[in-house]
Amino acid sequence: MDETGKELVLALYDYQEKSPREVTMKKGDILTLLNSTNKDSWKVEVKITVNGKTYERQGFVPAAYVKKL
């Protein structure tokens, strides 16, 4: 869990989004878990840094590609 009590997951593999509802992640990324009720895909939040500014983006990733921490 992070400092706000949200559950975290670790990306086990790289994943490139295939639709606007998904998010891209790299192996080793730590993501905030938002919903894990679907056995196939979990909703997560990723933090992306562009030019020194951090943005948050929500979307789905394959459940088999992440592990709860």
Rank of each mutant, 00 (worst) to 15 (best):
L69V: 10
V23I: 14
E7I: 15
K53N: 11
K47V: 11
N35G: 05
E45W: 06
K68F: 09
G28V: 02
K68W: 07
K47Q: 11
N35K: 05
Y13T: 08
W42G: 00
T49F: 11
V61K: 01
S19C: 10
E3K: 13
T24S: 15
L12K: 03
A64M: 11
E56P: 12
V9R: 01
D29T: 07
E22N: 04
L10H: 03
K47C: 12
Y65F: 13
I48T: 08
L8G: 02
T4K: 12
E22R: 04
G52E: 05
K53T: 12
L34A: 01
T24Y: 03
Q16N: 13
E7K: 09
M25Y: 03
K43A: 07
E22G: 15
G52Y: 03
L10V: 15
A11E: 01
R21A: 12
V50M: 11
Y13G: 04
L69N: 01
Y55M: 10
T54E: 09
P20W: 09
D29C: 08
Q16G: 06
T32S: 07
L34M: 06
K18D: 05
V50D: 07
V9A: 08
D40H: 14
T37F: 10
I48A: 06
A11M: 03
V61G: 00
G59C: 07
L12I: 09
A63S: 14
K68Q: 07
T37L: 09
T24R: 06
V66H: 02
T54L: 09
S41Q: 14
Y65W: 06
E45N: 07
D2R: 12
L33D: 02
K53L: 13
E7R: 12
V61T: 00
T37K: 10
Y15T: 01
W42M: 01
T32K: 12
E56I: 15
D14S: 07
V44Q: 00
T4D: 12
K53D: 08
S41R: 14
M25A: 01
K68S: 07
K67H: 09
E3W: 13
R57W: 06
E56S: 15
M25I: 15
G52W: 04
T4E: 12
S41T: 11
G52K: 03
K27G: 03
E3S: 14
V61Q: 00
V50N: 07
T4N: 13
Q16D: 13
Y55P: 00
A63G: 03
V23K: 01
A11C: 13
N35C: 13
E7N: 11
M25E: 01
D2P: 13
V50I: 14
Y65I: 07
E22I: 03
K39N: 10
T54W: 07
